[in-house]
Design a protein around this nucleic acid. Sequence first.
DNA 1: CGGTCTCTTGACGGAGTTCAAAGCTAGTGG
DNA 2: CCACTAGCTTTGAACTCCGTCAAGAGACCG
Lengths: 194, 194
Amino acid sequence: MFELFRNYIAKYSRASLTDEEFKKLSVAFQPKSLKKRQFFLQEGEVCKYMGFIVNGAMRQYSVDDKGVEHIVNLSIENWWVGDRESWVMLAPSIYNIDAWEDTDMLVITRADFLETLQHIPVLHEVIKSIDEKHAIATQRRLTASISLPAEQRYAELEKTYPEFLQRFPQHVIASYLGITKETLSRVRNKAVKK
Amino acid sequence: MFELFRNYIAKYSRASLTDEEFKKLSVAFQPKSLKKRQFFLQEGEVCKYMGFIVNGAMRQYSVDDKGVEHIVNLSIENWWVGDRESWVMLAPSIYNIDAWEDTDMLVITRADFLETLQHIPVLHEVIKSIDEKHAIATQRRLTASISLPAEQRYAELEKTYPEFLQRFPQHVIASYLGITKETLSRVRNKAVKK
DNA sequence: CGGTCTCTTGACGGAGTTCAAAGCTAGTGG
DNA sequence: CCACTAGCTTTGAACTCCGTCAAGAGACCG
C-alpha cells in the first residue's frame, strides 16, 4: 500500500525522506477504499480529506442548473484528489468527487497534514513542487479551453494523458473536454480517416 | 513605491515582516516601468522575472495559428505577473505579457527570489498563501469555462472582478472570456434589458 | 480636423448541441 | 448457453449559439 506512495514522494524530493520521516508521514494517512460510484466528497460538504490514489480511478464534477454533470478533473494512480478551495477555506464545496473504478486511497485530514508538515520540513519542498506542477497543468488546460476548438483539445489530451483514454469511457472524456459525447464520437471518426 | 507592496505582503502573513526583513526583501526587487503596449515577456523567451504591479494594468495572452490573440490573464495593482510554467521549468514561454496601461512594477529574478526565501523564512508562508489563492481562482475559471455559456461567464466576471470592466475595453474582456467582442456586445445589451 | 480605437448591428455560416433511434458490448441470472 | 439488461457508442436531422465578415457610428487624441 505504501510503497507506491513512497516512490511517489521520493520523485518529488531532492533529498529523499529517511525511514523515520517516512514512518511519521505514513501514520498520518489512513487507507480508504471506495467502490465504483461511491462518493469521496459531495456538493455542499466541506472537503475534510485529501486523498492519494494508490489504485483506481476517480472523477471530480459539478452539476449545473439543468442537472448536467461537468467533469472538471479525472484522476488515477499517483494523483491527488480533493477540492483545494473547500479544503483551504473550510467552505462547502461546489464539486462532487466519486470513484469511477473500485479505488484504494490514502487519506489525510487537514489537521494531520499541517502537523506532519511541522515535523518533516523536507515535505514543504515536496508539496510545493506538487502544487507547482498542478498549477501549471491547470493553466494549460484553461488556455486550451479558451483558445482551441474541440478537435485540438482532444488531440492535446491524447498527447498529454493517453492513459485517460484507456481508463475512462468516451462520454466521460467528452465531458472533461467540455463537449458532448456525440461531438467527441464524430471528432474521433474524422481523426481516424486522416 | 514600496508601501503598497508592504501592505500587500502584510495581508498575506499572520506575523508581519520586521523592518529588517522587509528591507532585505526590498533590495531583491527592482522597480521597472512599462509604457502601454510594451512587452514584459514575449513568446519564445524564458520568463526570467516575476513582477508585482504597483500601478497599471497588464495582459497575458497566446497567439494561435491564425494570428488571433487569446487573453488568458488580466492583472492590475496588487497582482503578480509572469508565466509560472516558463519561470519554474526555465523553458520558452508560449505566452506574451504586455502593459495595457502605463505600468509601474517591482520585479525579481528567480535567483534573487530563491535566495531571499532562504533569508526570510516567513516568506514561505506568504508565497504559499498567494499560490493557494491563485490556484483556486484558476480552477474556478476553468470550471466556468467548461460548464457555463457565455452569458453566465460574463455575469460571473462582473461579480468576481468588477474592476476589470472599468479598466479594460470590451474586446479585451471578450477575449478573456473566450468569446468575440460582437458576442459580448450582444450579451450585454440583452442583460441591460432585463 | 483626420486618424485610431472602440462599440454596435445585421446577415450569413459553421461548429457543436439536442433529440431520437439503433447497434454494440459485457455482464447477470435463469 | 442463451436471453435480457445496462452502459456505451454511433449516426442522422433539426436547431442554436456563437463566430465571421462587413459596415457604420461615436469617442478620444495628436
